[in-house]
Simulated assay, not measured.
Amino acid sequence: MAGGPAPAGPVLVTGGAGFIGANLADRLAGDGHDVIVYDALARPGVARNLGWLTRRHPQRITAIVADIRDRDRLGEAARDAAAVFHFAAQVAVTTSLDAPREDFEVNLLGTLNLLEALRARAVPPPLLFASTNKVYGDLADVALTVEDDAHLPADPGLRATGIGEARPLDFHTPYGCSKGAADQYVLDYARSFGIPAAVMRMSCIYGPRQRGSEDQGWVAHFLIRALEGEPVTLYGDGRQVRDVLHVADAVAAYLAAWRRIDAAAGRAFNLGGGPGNAVSLRRVLAWIGHLLGRPVETRFADWRAGDQRYYVSDTRRATAALGLAAPMPWQDGVADLARWLAAERGPDAAIGAAPAPTGAAS
């Protein structure tokens, strides 16, 4: 069956009403899979995503509104799952600094609850875990230079490839610690207990159904502020560089990891747009202004804890092991998200057809 192996049961997507989870659940249901969407509906906007999913796939989507910390409900949801995609998380660095215990309980204890539920099964199903590039810390040892309004590695080799999975782990902030520890637990449960699990260390994913805020989902946040005619605050100098990846490409990578779980199990993969989709925050804002036909008002504030001046994924391992296609150019993807957000806001926010791509950022 398209999208993954033929299931003997439903596919469980924790955090399935969130941005990436909802896009994945939609793809799975469209491919003919029964899907359990397990979500606490704690984040603003995710209830709308769930409503959208159930309207599109009324015969395929089953919703369980529950917290990842509820071991009994989670165990029940995972009991017959043919595969599990684990997105449920506390996702903001800033929130982790304000409420580190809750961050720990959701991200690490919640993941352990899921791992134990799968370990209890006679034949554990595949598990694909959404990790983060924050496991590599702030990368302060990487020598950088400023070129074209962007922080870029002084080492041309690193600039050409990005950060690879061999980079030492270095957890910063409670969020980095909780997600990093969960990342390691997933890999160890694959090693110690034979759970066929793989880890996807994601860079900046963006696209439709993302309801970004100042704390998380910055591409959508920039667009939302610009569409509303409000200023965007850049923390630091705005020359931070990220490799952005459209959610359709992220979903394709997760499904590829499921299809190839025998090769992916026990491994971590950096998942992002790679050097070809590396772009500074300032350049994204300039492109948004180009799309809207007016400049975006920008303000500046102090750097935030744990912020990486440069992070770009070395995607060669994922591309080779999972057979991934070239990702969507970031200019096309940002235009796609702009159209979706404008449509969500009605005709007063509509934008015209996107200009032709201008090429990837250097």
Rank of each mutant, 00 (worst) to 15 (best):
I64A: 11
D141Q: 13
E105T: 00
D336Y: 11
F300G: 13
N49G: 11
A256F: 12
D332L: 13
P100F: 05
P10K: 10
T145C: 09
L128V: 15
L97T: 12
L24D: 01
D148T: 08
V296W: 02
T145E: 14
E297D: 13
L337P: 04
V244P: 09
A320V: 03
T95R: 13
A8F: 07
P329Q: 02
A326G: 14
T132C: 01
A263G: 06
A257G: 10
V334Y: 00
A278P: 04
T161D: 11
G110Q: 00
G75Q: 07
A264E: 04
R201F: 02
K134S: 14
L24W: 01
R211Q: 12
I64K: 04
D237S: 14
G217Y: 08
W258A: 00
P7T: 12
G162M: 08
V146K: 02
W287L: 13
A130D: 07
A83Q: 04
T94A: 15
V279H: 08
G137P: 07
A81D: 06
H172T: 04
F85A: 05
F85V: 01
H151R: 06
I261P: 13
P231T: 06
A256M: 04
A92N: 04
Y175N: 01
T145K: 08
G289L: 05
A265G: 14
A25S: 15
A256T: 06
L127V: 10
Y189V: 04
A263Y: 05
A117L: 12
A92H: 07
A140V: 08
G306K: 07
R73L: 13
G180S: 01
L28E: 00
L291E: 03
T173R: 10
V35Q: 12
A350R: 14
E147H: 13
A78H: 07
L255K: 00
Q59V: 01
D348W: 02
W330A: 06
P156K: 03
V13A: 08
L109P: 09
A338V: 09
P275H: 09
K179Q: 08
S213M: 04
P168N: 11
L50G: 03
R48N: 04
P5T: 09
V279K: 01
D188S: 13
H246F: 12
G21L: 12
M1N: 09
L112S: 03
M1A: 14
P58H: 07
H33D: 04
W52A: 10
V241D: 01
R345V: 10
G4I: 08
E165T: 05
G212P: 00
D170N: 14
R79T: 04
P44R: 15
S203A: 15
D149Y: 03
A120C: 11
R209N: 10
D262N: 13
A154G: 11
M1C: 03
A2G: 12
E297T: 14
G306M: 10
A117E: 07
